[in-house]
Amino acid sequence: MAAVKTYYQERLRISAIWNSAGIYIAFIVFSVVVLLPIYWMLRSAFAVQADLTQTPLVYLPSPTLHNFEMLIDQVPFVEYTRNSIVFSVGTTVTTLIVSYLAAYAFARLRIRGSGILLWVFLLTMALPDVGTIVPLYRILSRFNLLDTITGLTIVLSSTLTPFTVWVLVAFIKQVPYEIEEAAIIDGASLPTILWRILLPLTAPGLVTMGVINFINAWNNLLYPLSFSVTPASKTLSVSITEVFAGFSPWGRPWELIMAVGVTMVIPITLLILVSQRAIVRGLTGGAVK
C-alpha cells in the first residue's frame, strides 16, 4: 500500500515538475518574443549608424544620445510632443464623456431599436479607416478644421466611440438598477447618480478604455498624416515619416526612426505601469456577471 502511495506521489511530483517547466518555457518564449523587438529598438536608438550595419552584429553598442539630438534638430520635436499630448488627452476625454453618456442610455433606457442601433455602432468599426479619409477631409475642410488639433480630436473620437460605448454598456449593465432606484428614492438627481454612484462602480472600465483610447490616439498615424500639414497640428508619429539620413532622400535613418519609437513608447509604458491594476480589473470586470 505504501509502495502504491509512493508511486502515485512520485507520479504527481513529476507531473507537477513538467507542468511548471511547461509554464516557465512558455513564459520564456513569450518574454523573448515580446522583449526582443523592444531590445532591438533600444539598441538601435542609442547606437550610431555604423553600429547598426556592422557584421558580425554588435549586440551592445556604446550608448549615445546623438540620435535624439539629431531628431530634435530635424523635426520640431517640442511642438510635435505637445500636439501628441493634447491630441491624445483630448481624444481620450472626449471619447469617454460621449461614450459614457451613450452607454448609459443604451444600458438603462428602453428605446425601440436600441439593440439594433448598438449593433450598427459596432458595424462602423468594420469600416477601414482609410476609406473614410475623403469624406472626413471634406467635412474638416468645410468647417475650417484641417490642420488643427481640434479637428483631429473630433475625427479620432468619433472612430473610438463605438467600441468604447460597447464596452461601457456591459459595465453599466452590471451595476444593479436597484442601487439607482435607492438613490432616486433618497432624492438623488441623474447627474448625482452618474457622478457619485455609477462612476465609482464602473471606474475600472473607464480607466481601461481611457488607457486603450490614449494608446490609440498616441500611436495614430493615419489621421495626423492625412489632415495635418504644419507643425501646428502634426504629432510625434508623423515624425517617423519626416526624419532623413544625411541630406538626401536615399538612405533610411533607422537609428532616428528607432529614437522616435523610444520617445513614443516611454509615456505609454509609464501610463500602463501606473494604471496596471485598474486595467486588469477593467478587462476582467465586464466579462462576468
Binding site: 448609459y104 438603462r108 433606457l109 432624492g187 438627481s189 448625482t192
Partner: peptide
Amino acid sequence: MPTSSKFKITRRE
C-alpha cells in the same frame, strides 16, 4: 443618500 442637487430632472431630459 445625500442629495447634492435641488432640482430634479428625468434621465431622458
